[in-house]
Design a protein around this nucleic acid. Sequence first.
DNA 1: TGAATAACTTGCACGATGTGCAAACTTGCA
DNA 2: TGCAAGTTTGCACATCGTGCAAGTTATTCA
Lengths: 204, 204
Amino acid sequence: MTPQQTSRREQNKLDTRRAIAQAALDLARSEGLGAFTAEHIAERANISRRTFFNYFHSAEEALSVSTEAFLDQAEAELAKRPADEPILDAMIQALAATTKVENLQDCGDLFRMAAGNPDLLGTQLLAWERAEARIISAVEERLEGQASSLYIHALVGSLLSCAKAAMREWASSENPDHDAAQTLENHIVTTLTMLRDGFSHPTL
Amino acid sequence: MTPQQTSRREQNKLDTRRAIAQAALDLARSEGLGAFTAEHIAERANISRRTFFNYFHSAEEALSVSTEAFLDQAEAELAKRPADEPILDAMIQALAATTKVENLQDCGDLFRMAAGNPDLLGTQLLAWERAEARIISAVEERLEGQASSLYIHALVGSLLSCAKAAMREWASSENPDHDAAQTLENHIVTTLTMLRDGFSHPTL
DNA sequence: TGAATAACTTGCACGATGTGCAAACTTGCA
DNA sequence: TGCAAGTTTGCACATCGTGCAAGTTATTCA
């Protein structure tokens, strides 16, 4: 009786979820954004339209799975950092580590696609917003009473804005698979260091 | 022949736009978010459903008019600052000045409402995102060649995140009309000063 | 001033969205 | 094996967002 962490049921759901996300990404690449419907995704994933909506609220949400994975990683990495490390150094290390995420390339593609599609962009922004809320809770616990609510919200918001800026810069330049992860990591460290030390002096 | 800057046509359109926005806000307050349709708004504004969609893409967008006004104000104030002022000081002054915007109270209400409604939140985030793009362009012109694209994107993103944090703090506390604008301005100056000098040392 | 023109509003139709509901089907467990 | 709980599916329905063409209002200019 191998104590499977994931029962057959849970595994099936995860598989279906992955299949849907993959189908959505395939369609986005082959047909173009907004050129396909929830029904098309369902068809390609071999499920009914109704089941699609049991998993996701919209086509855009199905596309955002990789982005969510990236953000979950950020949250998890931050939780790993030692409690006595200065908060900004912990953040730099945590965000730098996210570049090792599974499907980094998909994140870049999504980021580029979102730039030209308000619907997708809105969904992605919501994903970042939800992640922000989770990270704020984590930081609040970590700094228990040592910082004001205003400080924490401003800090975490800026943290994610810097990460976003880093991703944009990374995703917008043609990366001839020249160690993409390393490039992104450099951008992240650059922006977060500015955040830590102040934006007064632009480090070109 | 008084040289009217706004022709009758333009004025009518503006009036209609305002009427729709007002109708949407009224309904949101009286019925609750998500408890009314585009058709309801149109009815209350005395126009057809079709005309509503000529002005806005969705009910949420009609609600975001005050937020857009606030962000436009921020952009305009920044453009007013002298060109030789250090960029971060210019930003602090500009954002602080936005608190004099017409319908600040509506902005606060909207902000609170959005916290509990993903659709509205998504629309508001898009509005902030569009404003961010415009401000980035303005800053790029201002710093012409003196700063990297990465620096500018990270800075402006963080700027708006700090402003958002300030608004959240301001909107979430019961303000018994105790000079609301001043309270918000204080929060903005606090967060932007941290952005300028670095987040290393939490100023409680 | 009055006809021609441009801009705006409206109704209609249509494909797509997102969700409640109940009937089928699958899995877990005694 | 067979029942309880969880999942998928089809169907119906209200709503959305937009193209289109016909109607209405503002503007222009002869």
